[in-house]
Structure formats: C-alpha cells, structure tokens
C-alpha cells in the first residue's frame, strides 16, 4: 500500500474525522448560514428603500464570510492543541498527507460554497429588491472589483488562520488575529508611506495594498486615480493565491514535524 497517499485510507480518515468533528462542523456551518440569511433576506422583504438593508449585506460579507469563515477555519487542527487528542490523531494509521488533506478538504467544502453563496445571493437579492422598489431610489450592488479584492483578502486571512490553527497550540485564533492585525497595520503603513514618497506628498491618499491609488493635491485641488493595468492587477492577485498555497505547505510541514 502506498505510504504517501491511498484513497481507501483517505476515505477512512475522512469518516473518522467526520465522526469526531462532523457535529461541530454542521452546527458552526448552520449557524453561520442562518446569520447570513438573517442579514441578507430583509432587503427583499420590503418595498421601501433603506440604506441600512444594504449595509446588512456588507455586514454579512465581513461577519459571516470573512470573520465566521476564519473562525470556522481556525478549528481545522484543534485536535493537535492538546496532548491527548494530538496523540490519538497522530497514532491513527494514515499518512501525514492524508491527515493534512482531510481537514483541508472539510474546510474548503464549507468555505468556498459560502463565499460563492454570498456573492450569488447578494446580486440576486439586489436585483429582486430593485425590481420591487416603488420609489426612484435603487440599490447598487458591491462593485465587482471591490468584491474581488475582499475575496483575495479573504484568501490571505484564510491562509493565516489555517496556519495559525496548527502553529499555536492554545488560543490559536486570538493569537493569529493579533499577529495578523499588526502585520496588516505595518504593511498598510509602509504602503501609504511609499505612495507619499513617490507621488510628491499629496494632501490625501486613499489606497489599500495591491489596489488602485486615489490622490488629492492642495491647493490645486487636482485629484488622480491611479489604477493598475489589467495585466498588472492580475499579476498582483497571484500573490494571495501563492500566499495561500505557501501557508498550506508550511502547515503540512508543521504537522509532519509535530511532536507531542
């Protein structure tokens, strides 16, 4: 039998993992879906325009897809957090790769559909809400490039939380979140300082890492919007993908080298 990967063993380990954590996965996943629907449905239940209902969709993106999704991901390697559960898991006769791929698969099975579900429901509900509006006001959906930016950001967060769940034995989510927060602040600060340096110190700058720059100059009042070309932006967006793959690989190595 192959010592690296065997489909039958993979299936057995999947059943074992599901028997141990399936209930928790279903409860967490179910709760997040209920919260998502609670935040997104009201917009189609009324004919009157309300900006708050639109904000609830943005809230669903942050609270359910990004925060909830990362919370869900932070549990993938919880069994390696305590000595007794880690011992039980490491001693199961499956390969290290199978022990890595099973939690990854169970995670992706939830995270990817939830992200797509949000996106589909958002555009669908905005369309329904606009078609039933009696007044002149119309809802505008989250711009495609903004949504795409947040999905890539979501990938980076997912990668960090996934790695954090095996790297930190206790309070992995909190430790990862704190670390991620400080890295994000530092990275954004460096990004903004760099823009000020290369654009002759404008009066105001609005930009997020890997996205377009909006610049305002005074007293001239001139403002500029510097966007990356399509090819540049596509190249920049390979970074989150590579980052995610790297965190998965490091997590795998960490699992292989795990000592209990």
């Amino acid at each position: 039998m192959n010592q690296t990967f065997d489909l039958q063993r993979f299936w057995l380990f999947l059943k074992l993992d599901w028997a141990e954590k399936g209930r928790k996965y279903l409860l967490t996943g179910g709760l997040l879906l209920v919260i998502m629907m609670t935040l997104m449905l009201p917009i189609i239940l009324t004919n009157s325009f309300s900006q708050i209902l639109m904000l609830l969709h943005a809230l669903a993106l942050f609270m359910v897809v990004m925060f909830g999704g990362s919370l869900y991901t932070s549990t993938v390697f919880t069994q390696y957090g305590t000595t007794d559960t880690a011992t039980a898991s490491l001693m199961v006769p499956a390969s290290q790769l199978e022990k890595f791929l099973v939690p990854l698969l169970l995670n992706l099975i939830f995270i990817i559909p939830v992200t797509f579900l949000f996106s589909k429901l958002h555009f669908w509900f905005i369309g329904i809400a606009n078609s039933s509006q009696t007044g002149s006001s119309r809802y505008s959906s989250i711009p495609y490039d903004v949504l795409r930016y947040f999905i890539y950001l979501h990938m980076i967060i997912q990668g960090c939380v996934f790695l954090g769940s095996i790297y930190f034995r206790k309070l992995s989510y909190v430790k990862t979140a704190v670390l991620l927060f400080f890295i994000a602040i530092t990275f954004t600060a460096v990004h903004i300082i760099y823009i000020y340096k290369v654009t002759d110190s404008p009066a105001q700058v609005v930009s997020f890492p890997f996205s377009a720059w909006k610049l305002w100059y005074s007293p001239s009042g001139k403002h500029y919007y510097l966007a990356h070309s399509e090819s540049e932006q596509a190249l920049l967006y390979t970074f989150p993908i590579l980052f995610l793959l790297t965190t998965w690989y490091i997590s795998f190595v960490r699992l292989k080298e795990k000592e209990i």
Partner: peptide, 30 residues
C-alpha cells in the same frame, strides 16, 4: 510515522482521548 508502521503499533498514553461516540461507532470508524 508511515501508515505501515502505525498499523502495527498501538500506544496507550497516560491521558487518553476518546471521541463522543458509542463503542460500536468507535470500532466502526477506527
């Protein structure tokens, strides 16, 4: 930690972990 090594060794630690399942389910999956 190769599978062929692990399927021929069993370790009972001092502090044991058992999942929240019945004996039959435990045997069925492990």
């Amino acid at each position: 930690r190769l599978p062929d090594f692990l399927k021929d060794i069993f370790f009972i630690p001092e502090e044991i972990y058992l999942p929240s399942v019945t004996i039959d389910q435990y045997v069925k999956v492990l």
